[in-house]
């Protein structure tokens, strides 16, 4: 892991002192990461994990939590962003919590990721067919309809849901509910 870390200030000065060139390091880029954390199935364990993020100043894009096939274990899917040095710290801080059983950064592996979205939008006679067209393209499903609103269900990677919401923005969105990312490693 150490080799992939970006340079610390101290390393930069060391390189300068040694007269070595300092390469722009693409590891310094902020990337989205999906981290799976298996924790003891208790509310305390969940809060400790979330608390660690806020206490140490790491950001969270989304969190989902739910039971697994083993009722004593909960699985948390945490979507976060940061450069490789920050993510390495996040992983170490997560691992050191007493209640965490396993911590995996899926971003370094081949994995599938899904999110569920419910979106309620106002329609008129004019906009109705266009809204349904967009939904069809994204393979959305109408789960409720009234005289004024339609509610869609959409599944897929988060980017697809982002794009769907983006397409719906010109229309009158009433409500959006997103589940947050859940993810799983692919088997080879």
């Amino acid at each position: 892991m150490a080799d992939t870390l970006i340079l610390t200030p101290q390393q930069i000065i060391r390189k300068k002192a040694a007269g070595e060139p300092i390469q722009p390091d693409d590891n310094a880029m902020t990337r989205r990461h999906t981290i799976v954390v298996l924790v003891e199935n208790s509310i305390g364990a969940f809060i400790r994990v979330i608390n660690m993020f806020s206490a140490r100043g790491f950001n969270i894009d989304s969190v989902t939590v739910g039971p697994t096939e083993d009722p004593s274990v909960s699985r948390m899917n945490i979507a976060t962003a940061g450069n490789s040095r920050i993510i390495a710290q996040v992983l170490r801080q997560l691992s050191r919590l007493v209640d965490t059983i396993e911590v995996v950064d899926l971003t370094t592996t081949d994995f599938v990721e899904r999110e569920l979205c419910l979106l309620k939008v106002c329609y008129t006679k004019d906009s109705r067919s266009e809204i349904l067209d967009v939904s069809n393209i994204f393979r959305g499903k109408v789960v409720d309809i009234t005289k004024k609103t339609m509610t869609f269900e959409l599944r897929g990677p988060s980017q697809k849901i982002d794009a769907f919401i983006d397409m719906m923005l010109p229309h009158n969105i009433v409500e959006v509910a997103r589940s947050g990312r859940v993810a799983m490693q692919r088997d080879v």
Partner: peptide, 23 residues
């Protein structure tokens, strides 16, 4: 500007302290 010429060996029991401040 701390220890500009030094390589670092870090013997540590807490993994979160490793490369936290100094590589």
């Amino acid at each position: 500007s701390w220890a500009p010429h030094a390589k670092v060996i870090h013997i540590e029991i807490d993994q979160s302290c490793i490369s936290k401040n100094v590589f």
